[in-house]
Design a protein around this nucleic acid. Sequence first.
DNA 1: AAAAAGTAATTCACAAGTAAATTATCTTAG
DNA 2: CTAAGATAATTTACTTGTGAATTACTTTTT
Lengths: 161, 161
Amino acid sequence: MSDAVSRFLHSWTRLHPDLDLSTMAAVGRVLRLAALMNNITEDGLADTEVTRPEFEVLAALRRSPDGLRPRQLTRETIASGAATTKRLTRLEAAGLITRTPLERDRREIQVRLTDRGSALADTLFADQLDREAAVLAPLTTDERAQLASLLSRVLTPIDRA
Amino acid sequence: MSDAVSRFLHSWTRLHPDLDLSTMAAVGRVLRLAALMNNITEDGLADTEVTRPEFEVLAALRRSPDGLRPRQLTRETIASGAATTKRLTRLEAAGLITRTPLERDRREIQVRLTDRGSALADTLFADQLDREAAVLAPLTTDERAQLASLLSRVLTPIDRA
DNA sequence: AAAAAGTAATTCACAAGTAAATTATCTTAG
DNA sequence: CTAAGATAATTTACTTGTGAATTACTTTTT
């Protein structure tokens, strides 16, 4: 009853009593929580050598032992191809990744973490988990699992399209 | 078991069996769902005269009958002050809002929707609700309420800070 | 096998965002 | 009252992101 979205709901209900706002109660909060969480992450990364989008690239690479091609990276990070190129150029200059052309198809390249990139990804990922745990503090373990499960069911149908 | 985040969880578990990833199961999905939802919204707004961030400004104004000052708008939309100024300049030029200095403190201005801005906000908001409903289709009414309630409890402590 | 079509990464020209400085105004302390 | 200190919006200089070419291949068609 006391977050920003519940105020929004009240206002809209007064304006349009006919509209069904039950979806906004959930989706609006997903959007708002994500925006706030992104701010929290950016603050946490402020004195590291990478930005939040760059960290997302590092994290995606870290969990893929053989590296990834840029196309897969843009999908995993939900970015544009141009944004991925820029981030890779920046991360390569910083010595955190390497780009090597593929033998079997030389249009493609393989992006891999350097040792330093890998170590940095691990450190930053652990910090990120701490930040996320702090945000989820109001929920019990059980409720977190419940939340994850509900979100998973919403996410699954739209996550490939 | 089949969205992107559950793949991420598997990869990280293999890399670091010691880490507790239960928070990422929830927060990771919030972030990913929000990113996908924002894409959906942007696609839906593609042939309208406003972008998604501009729509968020219109929506915030629409639910505030007397208008808002820029400072409040930046808080409601989780933006920077500079971004708000740019959006207002753009929306004013498009004839969707007005900016009038306040009598009682002339550093501040009151931002209000024009009639056209108000009508546009209503149309776009109804469309947005439809898009959100489509995304939430996999959940029952009860589950949506459950999701909203869990998120509200997470959101409340961090939404003013 | 050559031409046409398709695909991956990048580049380009531009749009949108940001932090820090600036302008204008109000508030408060001496 | 006046100077110093806040505060609100904007401007400025710069960074980052984007869609639409472009480049460099590979695949398919004829």
